[in-house]
């Protein structure tokens, strides 16, 4: 049994205190200790983006981040994003554009889409594509995901 350490951080706006093993990943902590199952394990080595979370407003692969490094940070997961007006808007766009099939990559893509549009609210289609490079999707062929994010970035005047 490895050493345990107590950490404190904000999770989706709520202060949390938790004792974690030193070698535990943020992904395992979120899923196994805090019931945040929206963040997915896809590969465990930072290659697929399914476990994307936001730490101090920057997206990271939570599988590569140690839980202890969350100490003092501001963490947002898909559950937190989904409860914001922006998240609801993005959710609606993803749903209406058919960007969700099996849905396993979708939470990670939602987190990354937020990052891309926060960094550049006027992101071009090519910038959105580049921004999503680290998120794998096996079902959709990405087109409808990109359409959804573009629609959030550049809502059509008719509002369709």
């Amino acid at each position: 049994m490895s050493a345990l350490i107590e950490i404190e951080f904000r999770l989706n706006g709520i202060s949390r205190r938790v004792t974690v093993p030193l070698q535990m990943s943020a992904l395992e902590m979120l899923r196994d200790m805090m019931g945040q199952h929206g963040t997915k394990y896809g590969c465990g080595e930072g290659e697929c983006g399914a476990c994307t979370i936001s730490v101090d407003h920057r997206t990271v692969n939570s599988c590569l981040k140690f839980a202890v490094d969350c100490n003092g940070r501001d963490i947002q997961t898909i559950e937190g994003l989904a409860a914001t007006p922006f998240g609801e808007n993005l959710n609606r766009a993803m749903v209406e554009h058919g960007a969700v099939q099996c849905g396993f990559c979708t939470p990670g893509i939602m987190m990354q889409a937020q990052q891309v549009l926060t960094d550049n609210p006027d992101a071009s289609p090519a910038q959105i594509q580049r921004g999503l490079e680290g998120n794998l999707c096996r079902c959709t062929g990405y087109r409808k995901i990109l359409d959804a994010i573009e629609a959030v970035a550049h809502p059509s005047p008719a509002g369709d």
């Binding site: 899923r31 559950e79 989904a82 058919g98 969700v100 849905g103 979708t106």
Partner: peptide, 21 residues
């Protein structure tokens, strides 16, 4: 018509419980 998937809102908000969850 373009009918959105019935299961999409839950999936896109991280609520869907897969086997893993």
């Amino acid at each position: 018509r373009r009918v959105p998937k019935l299961d999409a809102p839950d999936k896109a908000s991280g609520r869907t419980r897969y086997l893993h969850d």
